[in-house]
Design a protein around this nucleic acid. Sequence first.
DNA 1: GTCTATATTCCGATAGAC
DNA 2: GTCTATCGGAATATAGAC
Lengths: 198, 198
Amino acid sequence: MTRRTGRRPGNPGTREAILDAARAAFAERGFDAASIRAIAAAAGVDPALVHHYFGNKDQLFLTAMNFPVDPGQLVPRVLAGDRDGVGERMVRIFLGVWDSPAGSAGVALLRSAVSNEWTARLLREFITTQVLRRVLEQLDVAPAELPLRGSLVATQMIGLAMMRHVIRLEPVASADPEALAAAIGPTIQRYLTGPLPT
Amino acid sequence: MTRRTGRRPGNPGTREAILDAARAAFAERGFDAASIRAIAAAAGVDPALVHHYFGNKDQLFLTAMNFPVDPGQLVPRVLAGDRDGVGERMVRIFLGVWDSPAGSAGVALLRSAVSNEWTARLLREFITTQVLRRVLEQLDVAPAELPLRGSLVATQMIGLAMMRHVIRLEPVASADPEALAAAIGPTIQRYLTGPLPT
DNA sequence: GTCTATATTCCGATAGAC
DNA sequence: GTCTATCGGAATATAGAC
């Protein structure tokens, strides 16, 4: 006999199916253009059920984005090794995350941020507080140079993600990650530790 | 007495007012989110008049984008000077265009390309055929390396435009163009003429 | 050349039955 | 937990009056 205690959920797969469909839709079309109706259809449920689970579209987006790779877990891998190789390792690990299934959350955030100020703020805060600050403060750079160095790194990294996963310009869109790490790594290295214009 | 010959246009300023409003709206919200109604309201005309002039939204977008800076006129300025300075000159001229009023067409194209495959193809073709090919074929680079070098340049340039004009991440968003040219120029220089991973 | 009126479609959100 | 029905709004586009 199976005893049941506590709350009995409905179909436990339904919620995850909605979140998967939401990530795919937000990644493909961005926040504004992705519709709850289309997400519900892709998940095989009724649109009203999405509201029942997540309240509104904002909350659905936040919940769908809130599982991505924990950046705090990646930073040690970027820093593990000699200081001269940090740029190349950063590009390699960055590409690995974006090329993985988890990367769809990144594409969704990037696509959404372009047409929606609310998600743009999310992206800015994610870039600065979750990624760049953690790496830079481990690299004894002068605190005054930290914001400029960090945003220079962001221009190259976001540009790479844009060209590879959003605009899909060849040959970068389907280039070997190792080749890209070798080509772009020195750029990141210079932005992090190289000379800065006065 | 004023004699009138030939076709008599209506209000000649109306059409330009619509195009100005369209460029501003497309730059601010992207192709999908910008509405003909809002453009008409900004231009002080009726929405139906926009259709009367331009047929549909696609044609309005194409017409509004079709006046921007002629890239063919910029290439000689990029190439004018020593070969080692081409990267820095390219960043400086690039920033000058994007910071000017004409840059709103670029922002519009970039913002639109993210959520709309049709405009993404426009942007890809503009980048490759109008900008990169013209510069690279003047720099005796091996033809086989041309696509990779060109798309590497595009990752950095588009990333810079994204961070400065779309996401608006500080301090890059309001940094002095000369400082950015000094910081990012060497990156472009290496992508154009530096060593490439095998 | 300009505008009114409208056809058509799709959106997010809610109320409430089962 | 799931779904039907619907409200209220905004979009593109067209037809046609003046």
